[in-house]
Deep mutational scan, measured.
Amino acid sequence: MIIKINGKYYKIKKIEKNPNGKYTITTENGKKYEFKNVKIFSEEELK
Rank of each mutant, 00 (worst) to 15 (best):
M1C: 08
M1R: 06
M1E: 05
M1V: 11
M1K: 10
M1D: 06
I2N: 04
I2L: 15
I2M: 15
I2F: 15
I2V: 15
I2T: 07
I2R: 07
I3P: 00
I3C: 09
I3G: 02
I3D: 00
I3K: 01
I3T: 03
I3L: 08
K4L: 15
K4W: 08
K4G: 07
K4H: 11
K4Q: 14
K4R: 11
I5G: 01
I5Q: 01
I5H: 05
I5T: 01
I5W: 05
I5N: 01
I5L: 08
N6Y: 11
N6C: 15
N6V: 04
N6D: 11
N6T: 04
N6K: 13
G7N: 11
G7M: 04
G7Q: 08
G7F: 02
G7W: 01
K8S: 07
K8R: 13
K8Y: 10
K8P: 00
K8N: 08
K8M: 10
K8I: 12
Y9L: 10
Y9D: 05
Y9M: 08
Y9P: 06
Y9I: 06
Y9H: 06
Y10F: 12
Y10C: 02
Y10W: 12
Y10N: 03
Y10P: 00
Y10D: 02
Y10E: 11
Y10L: 12
Y10R: 04
Y10T: 06
K11D: 03
K11E: 05
K11W: 07
K11I: 08
K11H: 09
I12A: 04
I12Q: 00
I12H: 00
I12S: 00
I12N: 00
I12D: 00
I12Y: 02
I12W: 01
I12G: 00
K13A: 14
K13D: 09
K13F: 12
K13P: 01
K13W: 10
K13L: 14
K13G: 06
K14W: 10
K14N: 12
K14A: 12
K14Y: 12
K14C: 13
I15Y: 05
I15H: 01
I15M: 07
I15V: 09
I15L: 11
E16G: 03
E16R: 05
E16D: 08
E16H: 07
E16F: 10
K17W: 08
K17V: 12
K17D: 02
K17P: 06
K17H: 10
N18H: 10
N18W: 08
N18E: 07
N18S: 10
N18Y: 07
N18G: 13
N18T: 10
P19A: 13
P19W: 07
P19Q: 12
P19H: 09
P19K: 10
N20E: 10
N20R: 08
N20Q: 07
N20F: 05
N20Y: 07
N20V: 03
G21F: 01
G21K: 02
G21H: 02
G21S: 02
G21V: 00
G21E: 03
K22N: 11
K22D: 09
K22P: 04
K22V: 14
K22I: 12
K22Q: 08
K22W: 15
K22L: 14
K22R: 12
Y23T: 05
Y23A: 01
Y23M: 05
Y23D: 01
Y23C: 08
Y23S: 02
Y23E: 01
Y23H: 03
T24I: 13
T24F: 09
T24E: 09
T24P: 00
I25S: 00
I25A: 02
I25P: 00
I25E: 00
I25V: 14
I25F: 04
T26M: 07
T26K: 02
T26E: 11
T26I: 13
T26L: 09
T26F: 10
T26G: 00
T27R: 01
T27I: 15
T27S: 04
T27V: 12
T27N: 02
T27F: 15
E28C: 14
E28T: 10
E28V: 12
E28A: 12
E28P: 06
E28Y: 14
N29P: 02
N29V: 03
N29Y: 09
N29A: 07
N29Q: 11
N29C: 14
N29G: 13
N29K: 08
G30A: 01
G30Q: 01
G30S: 02
G30V: 00
G30Y: 01
G30N: 07
K31H: 12
K31S: 09
K31C: 15
K31P: 03
K31G: 11
K31A: 12
K31T: 11
K31D: 10
K32E: 09
K32P: 01
K32W: 06
K32M: 12
K32V: 15
K32F: 05
K32L: 09
K32A: 08
K32N: 07
K32T: 15
Y33P: 00
Y33A: 02
Y33G: 02
Y33I: 06
Y33M: 07
Y33C: 05
E34H: 11
E34D: 07
E34R: 06
E34N: 05
E34L: 09
E34Y: 14
E34T: 13
F35Q: 04
F35C: 09
F35H: 03
F35M: 14
F35K: 05
K36R: 11
K36P: 08
K36Y: 11
K36A: 14
K36D: 15
K36M: 11
N37Y: 15
N37F: 15
N37S: 11
N37M: 08
N37H: 14
V38W: 02
V38Y: 03
V38P: 15
V38N: 04
V38R: 03
V38G: 07
K39E: 15
K39G: 11
K39V: 15
K39R: 11
K39W: 12
I40S: 04
I40L: 10
I40T: 05
F41T: 06
F41S: 06
F41N: 04
F41V: 07
S42H: 09
S42V: 06
S42L: 10
S42N: 07
S42T: 12
S42M: 10
S42E: 10
S42G: 06
S42Y: 15
S42A: 10
S42Q: 14
S42C: 09
E43C: 13
E43A: 02
E43S: 05
E43T: 02
E43I: 03
E43M: 02
E43Y: 04
E43W: 03
E43V: 03
E44G: 04
E44L: 04
E44D: 12
E44I: 02
E45D: 11
E45Y: 04
E45V: 03
E45T: 03
E45K: 01
E45R: 01
L46Y: 08
L46H: 08
L46W: 10
L46N: 09
L46S: 05
L46T: 06
K47W: 03
K47L: 15
K47G: 15
K47F: 05
